[in-house]
Design a protein around this nucleic acid. Structure first.
Lengths: 233, 233
DNA sequence: TGTCTATACTTGTATATACAAGTAGACTGT
DNA sequence: ACAGTCTACTTGTATATACAAGTATAGACA
């Protein structure tokens, strides 16, 4: 029913920041000052300041005080969801077609990145993901057998590589990039697009604690897909 | 020097999750249980659990307990920085060329989105951003005069539209999308790319508390630019 | 069988208190 | 003039306590 009291204090401070009454760099009242002003204990006032600090609106330094943070820079984020979730969330039907599923010797690929020796085997898969009757994503992966030993025996018309890999080992990190490319005729045929049509290409490396789990490239036709994101500063 | 005690408890829990001793869905000990186990007060144990909840490793529900969260889905983020920061961060020279800077009547544009009446004026700018001797970004903006009244008199060879707008009014939200496109000959000539070369197109709408501040589209040649991001799950 | 209640547990909020640790400025003594 | 110290204020950590509120289960009762 009634909001907790520390939210009142937070709202009070946010209001003063939004209306520019307190500007970037200004000192906001101390925990004790807010406590007496609002008639609460210091720990309650503290909680308000602390959460605002975690949310990035304030910068707090021991011994000095709490200050209004600089306006956040325009840099922001784009989210990339798992393809099957995204399609089913739209109420459409997702189907995965396995174009290739094999073990290849390490020297033929970028296995060095995976931290394996020369002769080692590496798993390689190519899937095509359909939304209803149109192909939407061409997915190629190289998987480290250490972290996904049963990869080749999975039925990817039921699960997806992404689900399998994240169920096997807790993923801790990833880096990725996105670029605009044109694709060769083989991929273009699979995706049923015209020659020269621009595509989004998403390269991703995923890590668990002990090494790289997989390297994947996802390709979307530019005319059928956009990556979207909403962001609260 | 010595870490605070609640971090010990956090590390203890994280260890058990990372080594799969506690798996997704498992219940972790209650605040009171941890308190007696570690010989601390409940509020200290609570802090450990609470922070882990905020970090997404645990899901806490009142009355039930704290549970290990599902492995985070593969969805992740791509960061988009301000173009001038990015170029200068690479140690290169950034230069902005103003191709157009004007006020246009609202009906000619998507001014409805900006929440303005028919006859209102709207600011329109096109800039080309150079990295050393190569054009890297074609930037087109429609700006709401209410939130950037001095927009037309800015010298964008010194500042950037992004800097000006975020200095004027505190930006609270944005949504954006990215797609792969080919561009018309005018933009292609400006960017010095061949006909049909794929480009990344980034559409963004930025909001402050009281309405849409601006609508912008950024276009990068696919061969010269990729959006990158690193992520800790 | 089904429903309501009591109870035991959980997390959430709030207070009062104590001490630790970092910062700035004033005040000291040389 | 300068260096060191002391003080006042800040945030950080930790405890003990109390009550509120949500959940599930066991048991009483119709």
């Amino acid at each position: 029913m009634g909001k907790p009291r520390y939210t009142r204090i937070k709202e009070h401070i946010i209001r003063r920041i939004d209306t520019s009454r307190w500007k970037a760099g200004d000192r906001v009242p101390s925990e004790n000052a807010l406590a007496t002003e609002f008639g609460v204990s210091r720990m309650t006032a503290r909680r308000a300041l602390q959460e605002l600090g975690e949310e990035g609106l304030l910068v707090r330094t021991q011994g000095l005080g709490s200050f209004v943070a600089d306006a956040r820079p325009m840099s922001s984020m784009l989210t990339v969801r798992s393809i099957d979730e995204e399609i089913t969330a739209r109420g459409h039907q997702h189907r995965a077609e396995v174009l290739l599923l094999e073990a290849v010797p390490a020297e033929r690929t970028n296995a060095l990145l995976l931290g394996l020796g020369e002769g080692a085997e590496i798993f390689h898969s190519i899937l095509l993901h359909w939304e209803n009757t149109l192909p939407l994503q061409y997915e190629e992966r190289f998987v480290n057998p250490r972290f996904g030993p049963e990869y080749l025996s999975q039925d990817f018309t039921v699960t997806t590589p992404s689900h399998y890999l994240s169920s096997i080992s807790p993923l801790t990190e990833a880096d990725q990039s996105i670029e605009a490319v044109t694709v060769d005729s083989e991929i273009g045929r699979a995706l049923q697009i015209k020659r020269g049509e621009p595509c989004l290409k998403l390269n991703r490396r995923t890590w668990c604690q002990r090494g790289i789990v997989n390297i994947s490239t996802l390709i979307y036709p530019g005319s059928r897909y956009r990556i979207g994101g909403h962001l609260n500063f």
